[in-house]
């Protein structure tokens, strides 16, 4: 019965139970990196920039790397997810 649910696409295994797991993780996968970059931005602004201290500039750089890097990959992921939901 399970084998009927399961099929191979390219090199990955896809099945209904797995899709449920994916949907459970979805909010975490998308929002946690943004939360971390916001914490880093907050830390840079309040402890560094507003105090005139350059020690925290690295946190700004990391926040931007995390933010931009995640946006670049989240957009096609969310698009593909929306597409697959509409096709069902």
């Amino acid at each position: 019965m399970r084998e009927e649910n399961r099929y191979l696409t390219g090199k990955s295994i896809v099945n209904r139970q797995g899709i449920r797991t994916e949907l459970c993780f979805l909010p975490l996968l998308i929002f946690l990196p943004f939360a971390v970059s916001i914490i880093l931005l907050w830390s840079w602004y309040y402890r560094g920039f507003s105090m005139g201290c350059s020690d925290y500039d690295g946190e700004l750089m990391l926040a931007l790397i995390i933010l931009i890097g995640n946006i670049v990959f989240d957009i096609p992921f969310v698009k593909s997810l929306v597409r697959s939901i509409h096709r069902k």
Binding site: R6, K11, I13, N15, Q17, G18, T21
Partner: peptide
Amino acid sequence: SSNYFFGLRV
């Protein structure tokens, strides 16, 4: 079951 692990490679 491996079915619960989404996106696992073959």
